[in-house]
Every structure is written in C-alpha cells, then in structure tokens.
Design a binder for these strands. Sequence first.
DNA 1: CTCTATGCAAAAACTTTGCAGGGAT
DNA 2: ATCCCTGCAAAGTTTTTGCATAGAG
Lengths: 124, 124
Amino acid sequence: MREKTKKLFQDKNIKPTAAREMIFDILSRAKLPLSYEQIRAKMKIEMDKATFYRNVSLFEEANIIQKFESDERKWYFELLKKTHAHFVCESCHSVICVDFTINPNIEGHSVKNIILKGICKSCK
Amino acid sequence: MREKTKKLFQDKNIKPTAAREMIFDILSRAKLPLSYEQIRAKMKIEMDKATFYRNVSLFEEANIIQKFESDERKWYFELLKKTHAHFVCESCHSVICVDFTINPNIEGHSVKNIILKGICKSCK
DNA sequence: CTCTATGCAAAAACTTTGCAGGGAT
DNA sequence: ATCCCTGCAAAGTTTTTGCATAGAG
C-alpha cells in the first residue's frame, strides 16, 4: 500500500483492510469508471458483493469515490477527480469520459455530475 | 382520442388500444418526465404493470417516448421532444427539465440525452 | 476483550417474461 | 379463425440488509 493511500485512509478515518485497499487500488488504476462486475474481474482476492458495496459506500461518503448509473441500471464507480462528463453509449453501453465542463450553476441548481447519452463514435 | 394522436399511431403502426391511449395521453399532458408510479397515479383505468412496460417499450422503439433513469434507479418517461436536459437532484430526487443545449457532437459521439446531477435550488 | 469488517443468505425494488385467455377484425 | 393485447404470476437483476462469525489491535 502506497504511503499516499495510507495517508488518505488515515485522513478519512478509514481502516485499511485488504478489501478496501483492493477496491481503491483497482479504481486508482482505472482510466474509466468501472461497474461492480468489471471491478470484480480485476480482483486478485474475491470478496463478497456485500463487502464490496459497503466499502464503496464508505468511500463515497468520504468523498473519495463517485458513482453514477449507466443505462443498463448498474452503478459505475470512479475516484472523484476533477469534474468531467461521462458519455454512455445506448448501443454498446460503454462508458467514456469526455472533457466537457459547464457552468456548475444551471438555473439555480448546482451541477455536480454530467451524463451524456447517445451513440458513440464506434457504434455509428 | 385526438386526430393527431390517431394519425401518429397509424404512422407508427401502433394499434390504438385503451392502455396505449391512456399512457400517451398522460405523457402528452405532463410537463416533466414521469415514473411508472407517477403515471399509474394518473391512470383513470388501471392496467397491469406488464402492459404498461410493454407499451412503453413499444413507444420507445417507435421513437415516440424517451426514457432515462433517475438516481433512484427508476425509469422516467416523457414524450420525445426537442432536446433538452434533465436535472436530477441527489437530495430530493426530483427531476427538472432545464433549457440547456449543447453541440450534439462531443468528441465524435452523438449526444441525444443530457442528464445533470447535483443539488437543486430548493434543497440548497 | 472489544469493536467492526466480512460472508452468507435472504430481502428489496423495479422490470421483464411466459403463458393462457379474450377481444377485435 | 386469427392475431395480438392483456393480466397474472413467476422469474430476473442489481443492490441492500440482518445476523452470526472472524479478525485486528
């Protein structure tokens, strides 16, 4: 476990368990948001899905992770980084990060998350 | 049933049944996307949920209806109108249509749907 | 010892599917 | 008669919860 991660966990008061380190590690290497299935496929040690979801919620409350729903009714998770948008293809269901920023105030509402849906360029 | 609706159904090859007319009617009056529960609450005649979902899928395939998921993992339905965005409040879960248009081509992908998430102005 | 993380199984929530009956043409 | 729309019940999918056990400090 890297020093930086150890420190992050300490700061957030998160006990570093094997499950947590693995989830964090997988997400920090990911270039895209990942679903539970995708994360599980990358796990070197199996963990129960309850453990997975519970730990992800923990990270979420600590503002380490962000989640959003794809069009296949699954959650996708990623480390909370600088704001960017996600494009979800309604044909192949892939999730793509796109560089797209907007004014975070739209008609008085605070926007924290942008999801674009449509058909990705490979599917066209 | 209005002439216009009758014609629409004919054009799309959709047999006008009571269930279909009712769903269409409720959605055409709606100012916001509605969930199954919300639509059901407006029904004058009850219909089975299977019938509801099947007919909605039919409309969807005919490009009459558009659906998207809220953050509460429910589908919301609305008539396919000019492109606009939906704001979903992560606190009160309300769905708000906002006037927000973007270039439909983002990094080569065709955007058909925009979902913004965050905290709405009443919750702030 | 104590505290809480984990696994297992069951529950939950929302949608979808299979199948048989019923209406419309 | 045929077609396909509908209701009912059961299955499906993903996520959450309850509970007992295991493990860390």
